[in-house]
């Protein structure tokens, strides 16, 4: 029955079914997905061994679908807090374009489809790791950690670090040191990246009652933690060299970029509260995205040009 041929008193507007295709696309968190796809491609190319290009494409497609599923399930569960945060209030679920149940169904369908496809078409080792990644992001991070501990993104950061490892396992069928090195790059990068965001969006997280480090431990402690994690990133960035994944070009480029990262972290540590601090945080936040892209791009270029690795 359409609204035109019914008595007005008989009609209530249909609950749900109003989302457009682009609303559903937004549920996949396409910007996050683009970084996931890129790091997964690097994992696929850097892994020792051979995979048929078509199966490589299927692997990346499944990882992208899995990342999209995680995004949709995250938006289903977090609709209440997304609604009160400026950065997320226009997402499809808090905006009312898509009902939470629709987001849940969409996310679960994609999650199951991506894992089954990867398992049936490529191998079950990588499918199991993809399933664990989705589980980790949705259940461990979104449902378990995010609302209860300021360590949410330290532990939850693992979810974002798994994609290159999933791609690696698609090639080698095993988790080895090289894949752990790629994992650690993203894992160590996540806390300073998100804490820099949290420092200049502190009010948003406070309003949503999310225990991010700045509103639980305070701004000085957050600045100190950003600096500590950035210092830890310096040895971590050389792990791909020590595990035979990357060579001299990577070592020089990534080493330089990490020193710039460290300098930005020192700027945040030294900055006084106010506009100076906000500026330093925004700078590190922006640069950290570039850092992740550039570091993985260096590995990709080295492997594509077949440059020698050191180990």
């Amino acid at each position: 029955m359409t609204i035109e041929n019914a008595e007005f008193s008989d009609v209530i507007l249909a609950p749900g079914g109003q989302g457009t295709a682009s609303d559903y696309f937004a549920l996949l968190k396409p910007r996050v997905m683009s970084l996931v796809i890129f790091t997964a491609v690097v994992g696929l190319v850097a892994a020792p061994g051979h995979i048929h290009p078509w199966l490589g494409f299927i692997t990346i497609l499944c990882i992208a679908l899995g990342a999209g599923a995680s995004g949709a399930l995250n938006m289903w569960y977090d609709a209440d807090i997304d609604a009160v945060m400026k950065r997320t209030a226009s997402r499809p679920v808090p905006r009312g374009a898509i009902l939470p149940g629709e987001a849940l169904g969409f996310g679960m369908t994609l999650a199951i489809a991506s894992v089954l496809m990867l398992g049936l078409l490529v191998n079950w080792q990588s499918a199991a790791l993809l399933a664990f990644t989705i589980f980790f992001y949705v259940v461990v991070y979104t449902i378990g950690l995010k609302r209860y501990t300021p360590q949410n993104i330290v532990i939850g950061g693992a979810a974002g670090a798994f994609p290159p490892m999933v791609a690696w396992v698609a090639v080698t069928q095993t988790v080895d040191l090289g894949s752990i090195a790629l994992f650690l790059l993203i894992f160590m990068w996540t806390p300073p990246h998100f804490w820099a965001l949290a420092l200049f969006r502190e009010g948003d997280y406070d309003k949503a009652n999310i225990p991010m480090l700045p509103n639980v431990a305070g701004r000085p402690e957050t600045r100190k933690q950003i600096l500590i994690y950035s210092i830890l990133l310096v040895p971590i960035v050389f792990l791909p060299v020590l595990t035979g994944v990357a060579g001299m070009v990577y070592a020089a480029g990534a080493g330089f970029l990490t020193l710039v990262f460290l300098k930005d972290a020192i700027d945040i540590y030294r900055a006084a509260d106010g506009p100076e601090s906000d500026k330093a945080c925004k700078h590190l936040f922006g640069f950290s995205i570039y850092w992740l892209f550039a570091v993985f791009a260096l590995i990709l270029v080295e492997r594509l040009l077949n440059l020698p690795v050191l180990m």
């Binding site: 029955m1 359409t2 609204i3 008989d10 009609v11 507007l13 249909a14 989302g19 295709a21 559903y24």
Partner: peptide, 23 residues
């Protein structure tokens, strides 16, 4: 008493058709 019937607007139906085509 007859229960109110959920109804889709013409715009809803258009969106549903587009979603179905994509699926």
């Amino acid at each position: 008493e007859q229960k109110p019937v959920p109804a889709f607007t013409a715009e809803d139906l258009k969106r549903r058709k587009k979603r179905s085509i994509i699926m």
